[in-house]
């Protein structure tokens, strides 16, 4: 039938379109639009939401950061890069940067090593396999508030469980919250508690895709468990490792709830700002309603994350194994 013609045309594009029949031509146009435009409509939801809640805030924050902008005043004076100049000379900003990096390294590195090791242990025939895997994920589904409140008590100075256990070994009373290093350790432990299992599951998924023959061959060649992990597993799951390293690092850059709650809601992160992270520093300026300055810090943090993600990518890419 003639009305079916456009369909056939589309199926065999080498034929010229039928131009003499306007009705058929219109159908043809609709079909072409469908082929060209529909895919965009299908991916549009993400981009619409991303523009509304990702791109627009990002751009607007940049705009705000160029102003003296407080919530209660209706006048927003344009000050150019003044906020950034102040920021670069602000001791508290650099202190927060140091704390963020320190907590980031302290939490991410052991966390990922532990996660790979846990995944390796689980990547073998086990009884009640699902139980183990679910258990790994449990800390992650616990509310962060609950985790921090409990851990703050464990790390308590006078009546904390950890100090009590340490006292058996003759370690004196540690004021975890007061010291810079001790508070960073305490916060890192909370982060590791929540995310190690989650990352282990991602690694486990990747490990299950590693061909069994490689391990069998290695076993025949006399390679032990650790050697197999180092020489086979890690090189093969390298793309997954890169992914996890980057997401964990970005996560570590954005730590907010843990230090905020560890300091019982103090936005300064301890009296000496000993564990004030960058996010907490933004939050402090935000609750002071100094939006211009808070936006400037946000943008600096964004730049840091981009730089660190790039460095991470380059570093992890170099851990290339012999297999690939």
């Amino acid at each position: 039938m003639a009305t079916r013609a456009p369909d056939n045309l589309a199926a065999t594009p080498s034929l010229p379109p039928v131009r003499h029949r306007p009705r058929a031509y219109r159908r043809h146009l609709v079909h072409r639009l469908d082929v060209k435009v529909s895919p965009y409509a299908y991916v549009a939801p993400f981009f619409l939401l991303f523009c509304a809640f990702g791109l627009f805030p990002l751009a607007y924050t940049a705009w705000v950061s160029l102003h003296e902008w407080t919530l209660l005043s209706d006048v927003h004076e344009f000050v150019g890069l003044d906020n950034f100049v102040t920021l670069l000379g602000d001791d508290y900003f650099w202190n927060a940067t140091f704390n963020t990096l320190s907590i980031g390294v302290l939490s991410t590195v052991p966390q990922l090593l532990l996660a790979i090791w846990l995944a390796h242990l689980l990547n073998r025939p086990l009884r009640t396999q699902t139980l183990f895997r679910v258990t790994l994920l449990l800390p992650n589904v616990t509310s962060v508030v609950a985790v921090v409140v409990i851990f703050s008590q464990l790390f308590g100075r006078d009546y904390g469980l950890i100090n009590w256990v340490l006292s058996w070994f003759g370690v004196g009373v540690i004021d975890w919250n007061a010291g810079t290093a001790t508070s960073h350790v305490a916060i890192s432990v909370m982060i590791m508690w929540r995310w190690t299992g989650y990352n282990a599951l991602i690694f486990l998924a990747a490990m299950q895709a590693v061909p069994r023959e490689l391990y069998e061959a290695a076993t025949i060649d006399g390679a032990g468990g650790m050697t197999q992990l180092r020489k086979i597993t890690v090189p093969v799951i390298r793309p997954t490792i890169i992914f996890v390293v980057i997401t964990s690092t970005i996560g570590a850059m954005q730590i907010l709830a843990e230090p905020l709650l560890f300091g019982t809601y103090s936005p300064t992160g301890g009296p000496d700002r000993q564990y004030q992270t960058l996010s907490l520093f933004i939050y402090e300026n935000f609750v002071k309603l100094d939006f211009g300055y808070a936006s400037a810090v946000s943008w600096m943090m964004f730049l840091f994350i981009v730089v660190i993600a790039a460095v991470n990518y380059l570093l992890t890419r170099r851990t290339r194994g012999n297999l690939t």
Binding site: D7, H31, D34, V37, S38, A41, A44
Partner: peptide, 17 residues
Amino acid sequence: MGKLRPGMATPLLAAVL
């Protein structure tokens, strides 16, 4: 079938919006 697909795309787009 060519008739059906554009028909679906419109409500879908509307839903997205």
